[in-house]
Design a protein around this nucleic acid. Sequence first.
DNA 1: CTTTTGCCGATTGTCAACAGTTTGAGATTC
DNA 2: GAATCTCAAACTGTTGACAATCGGCAAAAG
Lengths: 228, 228
Amino acid sequence: MSLDIDSALQLRRNQSLTSIIRRELEQMIERGELSAGERLNENALAAKLGVSRGPIREACRGLEQSGLVNVVVNRGVFIRALDGREAAELYEIRAALYGLAGRLLAPIVTDEQVAILTGYVEEMDAAMAAGDLNSFYPGNLRFHEAIVEFGGNARLAAECAAIHREMHLLRRRTLDMPGRMMTSNDEHRAILERIAARDPAGAEAALEEHVLISRNALFGPLGHYPDT
Amino acid sequence: MSLDIDSALQLRRNQSLTSIIRRELEQMIERGELSAGERLNENALAAKLGVSRGPIREACRGLEQSGLVNVVVNRGVFIRALDGREAAELYEIRAALYGLAGRLLAPIVTDEQVAILTGYVEEMDAAMAAGDLNSFYPGNLRFHEAIVEFGGNARLAAECAAIHREMHLLRRRTLDMPGRMMTSNDEHRAILERIAARDPAGAEAALEEHVLISRNALFGPLGHYPDT
DNA sequence: CTTTTGCCGATTGTCAACAGTTTGAGATTC
DNA sequence: GAATCTCAAACTGTTGACAATCGGCAAAAG
């Protein structure tokens, strides 16, 4: 009982309407309920959420800074549309950051953490065997999240999460295409193996390669910066 | 005359009060007029800038997202203070990003760009010879900016600029300490030499090392994540 | 003397209204 | 019939006001 009150107060304590709305909008983008290029109507949103326009505008300024929306003066805020070039640039950065995460993690990883990562890979194996893409995806997500978390650089983890959110702005929604599921998990095994071997350079290379292969699967292996 | 009007309109066209205020606050932080931990008073700022609190609050939400301020509900916004651990984490990320920039640039750099970079290094040499730290600093800044710009990944350049802004939150303000000026420019020469040789791996390594040496100069070479 | 309690000024969170801009439809002209 | 002009509706930018909350100080209780 008192625990409920405490947690409720704790929630209230660092959640203004603005932050609640920002999170809500982020999730709407992640779920695809707001698609790229779409315009946000402040009045409509305010009415829908039962608040005034002030907090909505504040939330949108936060989203603007994190790159999820574009704001055009006197015209409104638009869900950002990643073109091919921007997505490719993002993948490049992501590859470098995941590589760094692997390099940080390999020397300090614990046996327990290796076990956790192994669990995720096996989950994905099971999903793969069942041909179930919907349960493959969360395993994939947690595998990558865990690597950056365990690496010990909290800021790096936050940055990777932000980039991952931004990836949802890509029009072609298949972040990991069905056909890539099995080869993808082979790569996961390779990454895990290098981490478990406490091999920083190997883990770095495996993670970088994994991200860049994903990128090439989306854009084709040739174009450096595709134009759409 | 009409040019003045046009440029004024052009300014007005994609600059809301919010964006002007955000830039102003960023510059105040960069110039050190707002020091870490300090609290921003919305009313005072609004009066000082001659606007209402709305745009101020919106600007602060943007600054929050880019990590320049902390917002505590019902207490206000505080200029963020980087502790040692956060700064070290930032340096690690920065090293990886600059390394990526060097790797991208080396294969595609033009002779003209090499000449520009060489010019910056010589500027720094001159400043060094004159013992003039104040003219060393901007050369240093432009050298690093140019490398990420020329690399061709616009998003990477933006990310590096954001991290650089964030570095100004460090309490120990000497981003490059006086004593490091000469050794620092030796490293710049090494970086430039690897880029001019069109050597991606070498440029990457030289840039990473350069950033990590800076980090160690600030924190000492030993501690992985210092606590203050 | 220390601790608790209640109040008050200051500050933030939120809202509703006003002012200026954009947009699109219909009228008007050539 | 096509292009241009006019104008009103819709929307965003900004403001000032109201409500809720926090921190500190003084008085009362122990």
